[in-house]
Write a protein that binds this DNA or RNA. Structure first.
Lengths: 203, 203
DNA sequence: GTATAACTTGAGTGATCACTCAAAAACAGC
DNA sequence: GCTGTTTTTGAGTGATCACTCAAGTTATAC
């Protein structure tokens, strides 16, 4: 049994995340996957079933990372929107790291890549984004009850607006643009979102 | 000479835009292109040089459409930011039309699709997005001089923020989401951008 | 030490990729 | 209606695509 199941599997998945995040599903060939995972085709197919199966697992790993990153940022702030602003700021640091496979979000890249003949993958992506929206909506509803948000704010609408902000920030960051300008954009997004908070945004 | 040059060339390009916009560069095969343009490979290569050449021309056509659409929206508003809000509202109508190849922007889809071994295409996309930013910056500077924006607003920063809003709106619209919710998101984006205007946003 | 099971290997599968080019077809000039 | 030029055609190019499987290797069981 040359393969120590759990450890090597997770290590391979991490490599798959990095490759798919950088190149997308269609942009990553099996030859590149073999090289990135240091596995031969037979092993890959025995372990993950198909390129599709590997990608779905990689997307899950990536989504898990995202959720964890958001949860950490929320935990270090006294208010919910403060946590969101924390997240936007820490995000700019993460995506501009020199070893980041891409600045844009892997889930959004997949959302824009999938065609109608990949309905299952499209459904998976939609579920992931819906889950983020739902989670964020719940957090905002608590904040709303604590009086952190303006009284007439619709929490689900605000959750979607925040998700759109993250998509916009990270997509624009994919342009040939300086790190400093991305940080500035994040601050401007925070300023704009201040329209929905009770207290004025601090800088 | 069975091909009436100009007319058929433009018609073919329109078809190419629709196919590439929907499926992306890598997602559109030559077989699908042949079918969409109703041309055989030899004619396509004689006319456009390569798949890459065809895509670049299609991207130009699309970018031209975008610019025209923005200019029209700006023309029907008394103020610059009012024109931007007009554009965001008309955009939701355009991208939710049943015959729209995709809701997300073709330029952004390309931006997120291209890898580092496609530097020329990446450069072309960056140029197009930079041109939009520059154009918007110029318009906002006029508005700033007319006192339409808050005194401390940086017009280039605001232009980038607006571009990020468009990217975010159209990317989120690519989700499995109702048309009405996209319109609501556009209104919330307009509200958020109100943080930078002198006069309060009207609804 | 031997048998059995678990797993990896990598050459090879047919299909599809972007692309080519000799031959046929459709035109213009006269 | 014939000639010369331009354009279209579509079978065919080698390369690469995702994927398979018989054979080989490495582990465990006893």
């Amino acid at each position: 049994m040359p393969r120590i199941a759990k450890y090597d599997r997770d290590k391979a998945l991490e490599s798959a995340v990095n490759l798919f995040w950088e190149r997308g599903y269609g942009g990553a060939s099996m030859k590149q996957i073999e090289q990135a995972l240091d596995m031969r085709p037979g092993s890959i197919y025995a372990t993950f079933g198909s390129k599709d199966g590997l990608f779905r697992e990689a997307l899950d790993v990536y989504a898990g990372r995202m959720s964890r990153s958001l949860a950490e940022a929320m935990a270090t702030a006294p208010s919910t929107m403060g946590g969101v602003f924390n997240y936007l700021r820490s995000l700019t640091g993460e995506i501009t790291a020199p070893d980041s496979p891409a600045r844009a979000c892997m889930v959004v890249k997949t959302l824009l890549e999938v065609t109608e003949d990949q309905q299952e993958l499209r459904a998976l992506v939609n579920e992931r984004l819906q889950a983020v929206e739902d989670h964020l909506t719940g957090l905002l509803e608590q904040a709303h009850q604590r009086g952190e948000l303006k009284a007439d704010v619709d929490c689900r609408r605000l959750a979607r607006l925040i998700q759109a902000q993250i998509m916009g920030l990270r997509s624009l960051a994919q342009r040939d643009i300086a790190v400093e300008d991305i940080k500035i954009l994040a601050e401007d997004i925070i300023t704009a979102l201040g329209a929905f908070t009770q207290d004025p945004v601090s800088h």
